[in-house]
Design a protein around this nucleic acid. Sequence first.
DNA 1: ATGTGCTAACTGAATAGTTAGTCAGCACGT
DNA 2: ACGTGCTGACTAACTATTCAGTTAGCACAT
Lengths: 202, 202
Amino acid sequence: MTQFPPFLEETDDTRDAIMRATYAALCEHGYSELTIQRIGDAFPKSKSLLYHHYDSKDDLLLEFLSFMLDQLEGQIPTYREGGADDHIAEIVEQTFDLGVAEMSADFTRALVELRAQAAHDEGYRDHFTRSDQFVRKHVAHTIRSGIEQGVFQDVDPQETAALFQVVFVGTMTQRVTSDDDVLEGGRSAFERYIRECLLEAE
Amino acid sequence: MTQFPPFLEETDDTRDAIMRATYAALCEHGYSELTIQRIGDAFPKSKSLLYHHYDSKDDLLLEFLSFMLDQLEGQIPTYREGGADDHIAEIVEQTFDLGVAEMSADFTRALVELRAQAAHDEGYRDHFTRSDQFVRKHVAHTIRSGIEQGVFQDVDPQETAALFQVVFVGTMTQRVTSDDDVLEGGRSAFERYIRECLLEAE
DNA sequence: ATGTGCTAACTGAATAGTTAGTCAGCACGT
DNA sequence: ACGTGCTGACTAACTATTCAGTTAGCACAT
């Protein structure tokens, strides 16, 4: 059975139930084998009802992505005070260890497939652009704080955050698309980068 | 019209022609809208003939990937002597600037889509595992040479190459799936990493 | 209370289109 | 005669989407 993230708890709302069904179907079948039928199967009501609430399969999935991103954005405390260095360490931990926080491996898989759609679909590209910008700005802001706190060297926050973003996407993609084990080694090397190029020597 | 890479020159061989047609169709339509029909359209002979040479669509595409990888592996001089530092600089250039060498943007797009299939398809995963290993070992070898040459610090070649691989996949994916411009900044930050964590200070 | 009109949620069955894959047979070099 | 490369027409399965029609609930006049 699919393990739902906390913000997808049971509610009576039909549209929430559709989001839940979409999440479940995506985890179970992946994007490439996702059909309206299968979303319907994961949904207590009828398949046709999906069209009552959304214009098309595409519309539904885009709304789904937007819904997930909203939840995620709402969930991340804009910035909990505390050492910026600790926060960065947490981000690295999440990047190389589990992927994103509570995301199941199955959902990560589907997410990588969904991102790939952005290569030829503007709607998806818009979504991931927004998503990337959110993450990158969050990291940049953290780095800026760290510099002010004196725990980071005087680096360019934008550029550094950009590298974080690339490493983040690369890791996530690599994890689910290749058995070549690159994560442990990549992590060591990246931590060395943080130690020598980001953290202020004490 | 599709611009073919040099190793896909015109030949009489039918199977080469099929590879060419697959490449062209992939560039024109991307993976998600790739059909046997469309490969047939880009092919001077008939669609049914494809089944005479390959068992299934999946078989054909896997053979195509394998074919491309063989060509690429054969093309990269195992190691042209010369400064390992220059060679690494070239790799960085190719990573952030054009993507891989002469690959068209269209093909890169398709390649990202193809990689995403590996999330749920073992055949594709095997391919990209092999592909990743090749690249990573090539980079690791270059780094090892650089250390011996005294131009690189005494880093762990495996770990460093792993980070290169992650950055490579991340950049390629990001480039075609997001309009958030992360490449320039990522490049600057990565070049700083190379300067401070890889190159031997002179 | 009750009947009436109206709307939104909902359903099962149908449809039109597309797809991978098949197959009987043609041309032709040996 | 025979195998090989090759073809066009075909099919069976699956897809997103539609649609005619059922229900349940609500507002409101009687």
